Simulated scan of single mutants.
Amino acid sequence: MELNTETITTPPADAATVVLLRDAAEGLQVLLLKRHQASNVLGGAYVFPGGKLDAGDQHPEVLSRLSQVADQLHARLAEPDLPSAKAAGLFVAAIREAFEECRVLLGQAQNGQTDLTALQASLSEGQSWRDALQTHALTLQTEALVPWTRWITPKQASVTNKRFDTRFFITQVPSDQTAKHDEHETTETLWIGPREALLRYWNREIELAPPQIMSLVHLSRHASAHSVLAEAASRKPPVVQPEPFDQDGIRTICYPGDPRHPIAEPAFPGPSRLMFKDKRFEPELGLAALLD
């Protein structure tokens, strides 16, 4: 991973990310997708499905196909200054990206017979998401998504030259669906326990960006998908605005709860800062700080 040294002057783009969970015999697992090596954002890194909010995500016809109305979704997202349509659109973006990137649909056809292959064929033939929802009489199940965290890229970003205002949602993958990467934006599907993912990162077997590292640290404190969903439902999504600074020539990112951060209340468990050393981010106290 290369360190970005540019200062970004453009405002952050609204985006949505979905953290897909499942319970396996080994315990809680999370879905990671390997981004295509040629991608201009985190190429080769393992990420959660997600992407930018599209204008079409807020179209009235799309919003009419949600299982909850915009005002309900606005209240669930807990961002008072955000227009209701945009709040609802972020739920749409999360569901859309999950289907486009790993073929998991949080939705159901009117007749109860959801044909994911036919939906994918419609989209591959150039049909818009709005038209495809209408063609297949789909309702998007927004109850399945629980707001988790909100990450806002700082102007001095460390791993990208773009800024995002990303809402992270948590959901449990439907038991009758199988996640599969799209072979375009993503090239590998990996179901893995959060602790194992952190160990593989530490052993340089996979590459992760700071939001994924800290999210996995958070998830590693839970034993089941139900536990994660219950925590998310019990509180407002914390806003995470990382504060980067250079210490002894080393780029360091601190998070809420760190002495250098303006917000004293921690947003999540684990270390309060990561340092860029040997082309990756790691806490001051090493692997133990990630797994403690």
Rank of each mutant, 00 (worst) to 15 (best):
L90A: 06
F91P: 00
F91V: 02
A94K: 03
I95H: 02
E97P: 01
E97F: 08
E97Q: 13
F99V: 05
F99G: 01
F99A: 03
E100D: 14
E101T: 03
C102Y: 05
C102S: 09
R103I: 09
R103D: 15
V104I: 14
V104H: 01
L105A: 07
L106A: 08
L106S: 04
A109F: 07
A109S: 11
N111V: 04
N111E: 10
L116F: 08
A118T: 09
A118P: 02
A118V: 10
A121Y: 12
A121C: 11
A121L: 14
S122Y: 12
S122I: 06
S124Q: 14
G126K: 04
G126R: 04
Q127S: 13
Q127L: 15
S128G: 10
S128A: 10
S128C: 10
W129N: 04
R130L: 12
L133V: 03
L133A: 03
Q134M: 13
Q134L: 15
T135R: 13
T135Y: 13
T135W: 12
L138E: 05
L138C: 05
T139M: 14
T139A: 11
L140G: 01
Q141F: 11
Q141Y: 11
T142S: 12
T142V: 08
T142M: 06
E143K: 07
A144N: 08
V146F: 06
W148Y: 15
W148H: 11
W148K: 07
R150Q: 12
W151T: 01
I152N: 06
T153F: 04
T153C: 05
P154F: 04
P154R: 02
P154L: 07
K155Y: 11
K155A: 15
Q156F: 07
Q156T: 10
Q156M: 11
A157G: 07
A157W: 02
S158F: 08
S158M: 10
S158Y: 06
V159D: 13
N161D: 15
K162L: 15
K162H: 14
K162N: 13
K162C: 13
R163E: 07
R163L: 09
F164D: 01
T166A: 13
R167M: 14
R167F: 13
F168S: 05
F168M: 11
F169H: 01
F169R: 00
I170Y: 07
I170R: 03
T171K: 03
T171P: 01
Q172M: 11
Q172D: 08
D176N: 09
Q177T: 05
Q177H: 09
T178Q: 15
A179P: 01
K180W: 14
K180M: 14
D182M: 03
D182P: 00
H184L: 14
E185H: 10
E185L: 10
T189I: 05
L190Y: 02
R195I: 11
E196K: 05
E196S: 09
A197D: 01
L198R: 00
L199D: 10
L199E: 13
Y201T: 00
I206Q: 00
I206K: 00
I206L: 12
E207M: 13
E207G: 04
L208K: 00
L208E: 00
A209D: 06
A209Y: 00
P211D: 09
M214S: 06
V217F: 01
V217E: 01
